[in-house]
Write a protein that binds this DNA or RNA. Structure first.
Lengths: 203, 203
DNA sequence: ATTATCTATAGATCTATAGATAATGC
DNA sequence: ATTATCTATAGATCTATAGATAATGC
């Protein structure tokens, strides 16, 4: 029954990856260790040789989810280097993202729950959120030390994007969902100093 | 042990009120029927004479939470009739709201969870959200039938406010929390057509 | 007679632990 | 000899139901 150290580490990574998806889909309290381990092809008994507690996995899976989401942002931006903000708003603020919770933004899928988690989990989200802000700041040409409101515009943009996704997922009316995403995209692009320059390439 | 019909209805309302607070504080899955009923001074056995299921209470408590939150918005706006938007952003985007989950905005406290609930719960949130939009629209002087983007600005504002609160609650760094709220307030007020007119009374 | 609430419990699930097993790593 | 995983289980909790009780409402 024992497997090699390499295989054990691979299994551990699989559990974290599976958890990062299943937590986003069902919530931290919405899935038990038995089903999480089953999703990784293991049984529940193996869990506590790999993690200290469920909370330990919650923290690690949160970090994994944020890393994965940031990677997707960077990839989306890289596909349209002359207009990274437009590329990311297109990528983020659409109905596909609204329907696909497991692979979507972890702040949207778990933000409300994170407020009720301990400092370890919040630390994972805080680190990821700071990276989101750094990306946005760079794309809108915001200096990071130009006054008492560092990254203020980036913070407002991220808030608008996260809020629009949360709202669009909280209603039944699909038309209303779309309108939230469209209104957020309009607002974010209008607030970017670079938006006029990039407008041509977006049209 | 039996109580009067009047008392029974009063008890039912108490359960809904208690649930609307405890769900916001601990999440729909974070509190059981035993503790919910205990919070209303009853025992678990009385629950199913009052509600069809836990989900039934989740839907009713969601509606109650949104009604209560809308009432607070109206009250805040009424205290500063010449600048309702400024009054509501002050009331909503502050650290007290960030710390007080049980009485705060239900979209912030439960938004991520609502995406995983059934249509009844989403209907309660949808109705409340539409009322938020109507209030905001009125305050910024937005016509409700002036093009293909009805209430677009109100939608972006609500998204920004909800997102900022979710983000500010998801991090450990209190300074960062404050900056999200400040950035959101700046962004929302700058986007209002009436913001210049009201600027004087806000300074 | 009806019924709102109570105590008690069924049956499922949850996190965490214990001990057995079998393959690895020395 | 060590250990990653397995099966099994402890003990707590969850939603929901059953039957008893005692006050209401007719």
């Amino acid at each position: 029954m024992r497997v090699s150290r390499l295989q054990a580490e691979e299994n551990r990574q699989t559990v974290i990856n599976v958890a990062s998806r299943l937590f986003r889909e069902r919530g931290f309290d919405g899935i038990g260790l038995k089903d999480l381990m089953k999703g990784a092809g293991l049984t529940q008994g193996a869990f506590y040789k790999q993690f200290a507690s469920k909370n330990d996995l919650v923290a690690q899976a949160s970090k994994r989810a944020l890393d994965s989401a940031l990677h997707r942002w960077s990839a989306a931006a890289a596909e349209r280097p002359q207009d990274p903000l437009g590329a990311v708003t297109d990528f983020y603020l659409n109905m596909g993202h609204c329907a696909e919770r497991a692979d979507g933004c972890p702040v949207v899928a778990l933000g409300s729950d994170v407020a009720r988690q301990d400092a370890d989990v919040k630390a994972a989200f805080e680190a990821g959120i700071k990276e989101y802000l750094a990306l946005l700041s760079g794309w809108i040409g915001e200096s990071e030390a130009d006054g008492d409101e560092p990254e203020g515009k980036a913070m407002a943009m991220l808030s608008t994007m996260v809020g629009a996704m949360v709202l669009s997922r909280a209603v039944n009316d699909e038309q209303l969902s779309k309108q939230f995403l469209q209104a957020a995209a309009d607002s974010v692009l209008a607030a970017s100093p670079a938006s006029n320059a990039a407008q041509g390439s977006r049209q």
